[in-house]
């Protein structure tokens, strides 16, 4: 299909207006859209709506007990954000491992979320942190918004609950409670520029030797980033001792539903989940 309309709105309501006609493709950083459209994987719609100039979609602010991260915040901007560094260190850490300097300068958080890759670098920490996404649309002349938990928003590789006329405007992350423990791990031989074979995100609240409100997110081991209910149950409220750690690592391995592909076999991915969950929890226990 050829693009017959290209627009680059500067205000949110203009952008939403431009999307009302349907068959619109949203362009932000372009780092996923360009190769996917050129290879035919994601053909461009009739309208190409470049939202990068929409002022409302930029910036990171703290309000009402949550970090409100504009969808157009680039990965580089996340890394530089004092608020992210202070409150969401695992999001910053995931960004450190995100592709390359050039891509971090262009790729946006909203784009990474909407691309919905099982290996998406920001998704695992965001799921662990209990993030939600804010979606806006203009169904009948007025702007309306809704909020969807991230874990529910992503439904499969490249598929989300975003409606065709909706725009993801922000990612909302509740401020972690006092005593927050966060850990992130991405498997790869490279520091960046690597599609993860697995990644792990842990967020919990530490009380003495015990973890509560545990969220353990696993990446690249299922069609979507997932939480490990088995590992979370094994950890919740129990002291971090060797047996508990081993049980949680084994549960995470069993919860994972990886496939074998050119990057790794399913068996190896499960082994990594086990070994790295165990390593992560041991480090928390010793730290």
């Amino acid at each position: 299909m050829t693009v017959d309309t290209y627009v680059a709105p500067k205000r949110l309501d203009e952008a939403l207006e431009a999307m009302r006609g349907g068959r619109a493709t949203i362009l932000a950083g372009g780092t996923d859209l360009m190769p996917q459209s050129q290879s035919g994987k994601t053909p461009l719609g009739r309208r190409l709506v470049n939202v990068r100039r929409v002022a409302e979609l930029h910036g990171v602010v703290l309000a009402n007990g949550a970090l409100h991260i504009g969808a157009l915040t680039t990965i580089s901007e996340l890394m530089a954000s004092e608020l992210v560094r202070r409150h969401l260190p695992i999001l910053g850490e995931a960004c450190e491992h995100f592709a390359s300097s050039q891509i971090r300068n262009a790729a946006t958080l909203g784009g990474n979320v909407c691309n919905a890759s099982p290996a998406g670098d920001t998704l695992v920490p965001l799921v662990a942190l209990g993030a939600a996404v804010e979606l806006a649309s203009k169904p009948n002349g007025a702007v309306s918004t809704r909020t969807v938990p991230l874990a529910e928003f992503v439904v499969g590789p490249g598929r989300t609950r975003r409606e065709p006329m909706e725009l993801l405007t922000a990612v909302l992350v509740p401020l972690p409670a006092a005593g927050s423990v966060q850990r992130f791990y991405k498997f790869g031989t490279r520091l960046g520029l690597d599609i993860s074979a697995i990644s792990l995100g842990l967020a919990a609240v530490r009380e003495g030797r015990t973890l509560r409100q545990v969220r353990l997110a696993l990446g690249a081991v299922a069609p979507t980033p997932m939480r490990s209910p088995g590992a979370e149950a094994a950890l919740e409220g129990r002291p971090l001792e060797t047996g508990v750690i081993e049980a949680a690592a084994a549960a995470a391995r069993d919860d994972a539903r990886p496939i074998s592909d050119v990057r790794a076999s399913a068996w190896y991915r499960r082994e990594l989940v086990h070994n790295m969950v165990k390593r992560m929890l041991t480090d928390v226990a010793e730290g």
């Binding site: 084994a250 076999s265 399913a266 068996w267 499960r270 082994e271 086990h274 070994n275 165990k278 390593r279």
Partner: peptide
């Protein structure tokens, strides 16, 4: 391997 688990090598 350190901390490996029982499991088949496929």
């Amino acid at each position: 391997c350190e901390r490996s688990t029982a499991g088949s090598g496929q």
